[in-house]
Design a protein around this nucleic acid. Sequence first.
DNA 1: TGCCTGATGTTCT
DNA 2: GAACATCAGGCAC
Length: 193
Amino acid sequence: MELATTTNFRLLEAPPDIVAARLLGSIIERTIDGTTIRVRIVETEAYAQADAASHSFKGRTARTEVMFGPAGHAYVYFTYGMHYCLNVVTGKEGDGAAVLIRAVEPLEGKSQLQLHRTAAGVSLTNGPAKLCQALAIDKRLNGHNLATLPLKLILKPALRTHEISQTARVGISQAKDVPWRFFITGNAYVSKK
DNA sequence: TGCCTGATGTTCT
DNA sequence: GAACATCAGGCAC
């Protein structure tokens, strides 16, 4: 069981844009105080080392160290003074690539998610900082191995191409025209912008 | 509906 | 000391 998950994680060693599309539809399992929450990834963004919008662009620092580590780990960073964002480290060790999880759809434990959020409905998890708040993800989970609980990534078979939309990324100031934002076509939890 | 702004901490220059 | 992969609330239209 654990072995199968580890083997599947080899998929994450691919370039970030491939992994970003591949992660759509996969499940994140989070346990908080013995309660299990399951959400489905519906929107992602890819960040490669050679990409001016990526934290790893300027090289390895104490902050970005995790991005250069092995694929399948969580890179959680703090931004705008009050928000955390969750990334999945991709590529070979030393690559400095990651996929930002921008939006998820609640499947199980929705009331538990609601405990951490004031907004309800799709606004519960339709943004990178929102989903971190709902899932109680903070820097303590930075560098966490996503093959294990309390935060576990369960890879699902890839979606068909027609189920995936691809556009330019959101909310960045560099390399804006790189079309590395991926989302499930028509999903209500995809962020609006 | 859509723009503007305040809140706020970490990282890097 | 400025930039920052954001969010939510308030206000104008």
